Amino acid sequence: MPSTAFSPVRWEPRIYRGSLELTGRVRGHVRRDLDGFPAEVASDVELCVSELFANAVEYTASGGEGGEVVRAMALPDAGRLRVAVTDGGFTETRPAIPELTGTDWFESERHRGLLMVSALALDWGFRSVIEHPTLNLGLVVWADFALAAGQAPSGLPRFIHAA
């Protein structure tokens, strides 16, 4: 029985002005780009991307004048969808889930986004855009989402242009 070879798929990256006002547009683009995927997967990805976008705007130079955020998405293999959000750098902190205890999680009005990403994604992490000993030229924060067999729509082109 012949096996069907999987060809990786990559969506054209989308670039957004670093403004929280654009969070709805970011979510809408994710929803549109994942048309044909299971609704649960698409909504998890949409929610996580909006959190990563908001973090980039809130905590990095992306939220400053002229700042931008880049969203990329790919199917590197048949069982995994990867999203990545790249910020503009210039911050001393690295993404981390805060160490809150007990009722602190219930009372906290902020800082739960990465906990949510961790809960919904198969895995997540970050890397520098360019390794440099003294400059922070931006971070790529990524999250992988599991896809069961057949959950990715068939016939996707290898590169999907932004509409």
Rank of each mutant, 00 (worst) to 15 (best):
F53D: 10
G155T: 09
A56R: 02
F126G: 05
L22D: 02
A146I: 08
G36L: 10
V41E: 00
D87K: 05
V30K: 03
G125M: 10
G150W: 11
E131F: 13
S19T: 10
L22R: 14
T4C: 02
H161Q: 14
H161E: 13
V70G: 00
G150Y: 09
A148F: 06
S50A: 06
A121D: 03
S3F: 14
A163Y: 13
E92L: 15
E92A: 14
D144E: 12
H29W: 06
S43F: 15
D35I: 04
T91W: 10
T86Q: 13
A54M: 09
T101F: 14
F6K: 01
L47Y: 05
L34W: 04
A84P: 12
R94W: 15
A121F: 05
A119W: 03
D144N: 06
R27S: 11
L75M: 10
G125V: 11
A149G: 09
H111E: 12
L115W: 03
V70C: 02
R17E: 03
S3E: 14
A143P: 06
R27K: 13
A162T: 15
V140H: 14
L115G: 04
A39Y: 09
A39D: 11
P98H: 01
W11L: 07
A42G: 05
S7D: 15
I160N: 05
V140M: 11
L137P: 12
L100C: 04
E46D: 02
F145L: 11
E131A: 13
N136Y: 08
F106E: 10
R158D: 15
W11C: 01
R31Y: 09
Y16N: 04
V30R: 02
V49T: 12
A42W: 07
S50L: 00
A146T: 09
E107T: 04
R94V: 15
R112S: 03
G113W: 06
E99H: 10
V70S: 00
R127P: 05
L120G: 00
E40T: 05
L156A: 02
E92T: 08
M73T: 04
S43A: 08
R71D: 06
G125W: 13
R80G: 04
L115C: 03
L114M: 09
S19I: 03
Q151K: 03
E92F: 12
G28H: 12
G102N: 02
S128F: 15
P8D: 02
R32L: 07
I15A: 04
R25H: 11
H161I: 08
A72W: 14
A39H: 03
G67N: 00
T101A: 13
S128L: 10
E68H: 08
I97F: 07
E40L: 08
V57N: 01
F53W: 13
G155K: 11
F90A: 09
L114A: 02
F126N: 07
S108E: 03
V141Q: 13
R32G: 05
E107Q: 09
Y59G: 02
A84D: 12
A121T: 01
L47K: 05
V57H: 03
L22C: 03
A121Y: 05
C48Q: 00
R110C: 08
R82H: 01
A149V: 14
H29Y: 02
G18P: 03
E131Y: 14
E99V: 12
V83T: 10
D123R: 15
S62A: 01
L52T: 01
V30E: 00
E109W: 08
W142Y: 15
M1I: 14
